[in-house]
Design a protein around this nucleic acid. Structure first.
Ligand SMILES: [Mn+2]
Ligand SMILES: [Mn+2]
Ligand SMILES: [Zn+2]
Ligand SMILES: [Zn+2]
Lengths: 144, 144
DNA sequence: CCTCTAAATAGAAATGAATTCGTTTTAGAA
DNA sequence: TTCTAAAACGAATTCATTTCTATTTAGAGG
């Protein structure tokens, strides 16, 4: 049992079940983002019984509690990835090979302030994501 | 027939059909973002026959060509809004009343440059959206 | 170690937003 | 006016995601 993941789960107020730990392990080993069904297919080998709804439910809960992150994908399907950087930051995601890279600073806190001040509203969250082709994929001229 | 919208369609290389014009008129009159089905229900009154797929198709095409914009909504359903600002900019969307407000500068072009340079990839697009409660909704303490 | 219970999971079934497809209609160029 | 590629119809379908009820289990408390 991976103690880091167990601690992360406890910190999030979630029970450290074998399936949750396996989801985290698998996603951490993954070089990029993955879909619930992809993870499920691969996780099934490690468990006698594992339901797809369980994978969906856990991925969503883990992303709610900040242990995992979600990709905003053009095809509007769900994808998740593991990022151990606990600072506030954002990501560059490769639409070809699914690699995810950190974007250190976003400077959006200032923007939030400004928007609040100017329009009188309250900014609850922001989405910032860069989409493109990573170094390797750009070189290969891949477009998928 | 609204000449502005007809021109916009022609500029996008799309035929100026009555239904497309009606979609643009309705969405321009809308104070916030709307879903394809909502627009369809209201547009049906103005046409003997109007298919929901037609509304979906046109909204998507119009957003592809930049005449309309899309909301990234937490519920992952499709919403579109009309914005006549042709400069590159982003939006603050109210999750309660659906109002959309412009965010003038995003400063992301510089970030794109930096990411390209540091990681060697190519940034094809970026998503920036602030979610929250607009002035009116924040005051009313509304949470929906 | 046990016990106990709220939380987690199974798995079949349902959901419903979005899309497909073959046919019919139409915008607009010629 | 004619003609054709583009647009629209709309019933049917898709399929990613969620719901639901019964069953299992993690882990707090003894
Ligand atoms: Mn990261
Ligand atoms: Mn705008
Ligand atoms: Zn890549
Ligand atoms: Zn509002």
């Amino acid at each position: 049992m991976d103690q880091r993941h167990a601690s992360a789960l406890k910190a999030a107020g979630m029970k450290a079940t074998p399936k949750r730990l396996a989801i985290l392990e698998m996603l951490e080993a993954e070089p990029g983002y993955a879909s619930p069904e992809e993870l499920w297919k691969r996780l099934k080998d490690r468990f006698d019984r594992l339901g797809l709804p369980t994978v969906y439910r856990n991925l969503e809960e883990l992303s709610q509690s900040g242990v995992l992150s979600k990709v905003i994908h053009p095809n509007r399907q769900l994808y998740y990835y593991f990022c151990s950087n606990r600072e506030h930051h954002h990501h560059f995601v490769c639409l070809s090979c699914r690699k995810v890279e950190d974007i250190p600073a976003c400077g959006i806190e200032a923007l939030e302030q400004e928007v609040s001040k100017r329009n009188g509203g309250k900014v609850l969250s922001h989405i910032l994501q860069l989409n493109g082709l990573c170094g390797g994929c750009a070189d290969n001229g891949e477009k998928r």
